Simulated scan of single mutants.
Amino acid sequence: MSGYQLTRIEEFQEELYNKIGVTEPSQLTIEDISFRMNVWIYYGSFRSEALEVKSGMYTMNIDSRLEPTQQWLDFLHELCHLLRHAGDQSTMPEQFTQAQEDEADAFALYASMPFGAA
């Protein structure tokens, strides 16, 4: 598409996939990206969430009750929080929390289907 300018979150997603070597749609899986990003994944009957255990060491809980497509989107949403956000949302102003949630949702959208967009 000529004249289209990527958003900052699209640029971030594209740079991330280039950095970790994701070049094929078949690599767009929780298992593949979590391995490349050194994110430990746990599935269980709890809501999806992520945390940085220590600098560069991540863990993520994925709700096993969800359909695989929703698990994938939850994974991407939480990955954005790990990579771009800091702080405890329970102590943040609502507008700041909402901005983080909106950005994580946008990242999940772009990261789930990036090929052929640029």
Rank of each mutant, 00 (worst) to 15 (best):
residue 29 T to A: 08
residue 71 Q to A: 09
residue 47 R to D: 14
residue 74 D to E: 12
residue 46 F to D: 15
residue 62 I to G: 07
residue 59 T to Q: 12
residue 64 S to M: 05
residue 28 L to K: 02
residue 61 N to P: 00
residue 58 Y to R: 10
residue 79 L to C: 08
residue 75 F to N: 03
residue 79 L to Q: 07
residue 71 Q to H: 07
residue 27 Q to L: 02
residue 24 E to P: 00
residue 44 G to N: 05
residue 61 N to C: 08
residue 31 E to Y: 10
residue 39 V to T: 14
residue 59 T to N: 08
residue 25 P to H: 09
residue 56 G to F: 03
residue 24 E to T: 13
residue 73 L to H: 06
residue 23 T to Q: 09
residue 56 G to C: 10
residue 78 E to F: 01
residue 60 M to E: 06
residue 56 G to K: 06
residue 33 I to D: 03
residue 25 P to V: 14
residue 51 L to C: 13
residue 57 M to C: 15
residue 32 D to E: 15
residue 33 I to K: 01
residue 65 R to C: 10
residue 68 P to K: 06
residue 49 E to Y: 14
residue 59 T to Y: 05
residue 29 T to V: 10
residue 31 E to K: 14
residue 64 S to K: 07
residue 51 L to K: 14
residue 33 I to N: 01
residue 73 L to M: 14
residue 63 D to C: 11
residue 28 L to E: 03
residue 37 M to F: 06
residue 21 G to F: 00
residue 61 N to T: 09
residue 49 E to K: 11
residue 34 S to W: 03
residue 22 V to R: 01
residue 66 L to H: 01
residue 67 E to V: 11
residue 50 A to E: 03
residue 67 E to C: 02
residue 57 M to Q: 15
residue 32 D to S: 12
residue 43 Y to N: 02
residue 71 Q to S: 09
residue 24 E to Q: 15
residue 21 G to Y: 00
residue 68 P to Y: 09
residue 43 Y to K: 05
residue 41 I to A: 06
residue 20 I to V: 12
residue 31 E to P: 01
residue 53 V to A: 14
residue 65 R to W: 07
residue 73 L to C: 10
residue 66 L to T: 01
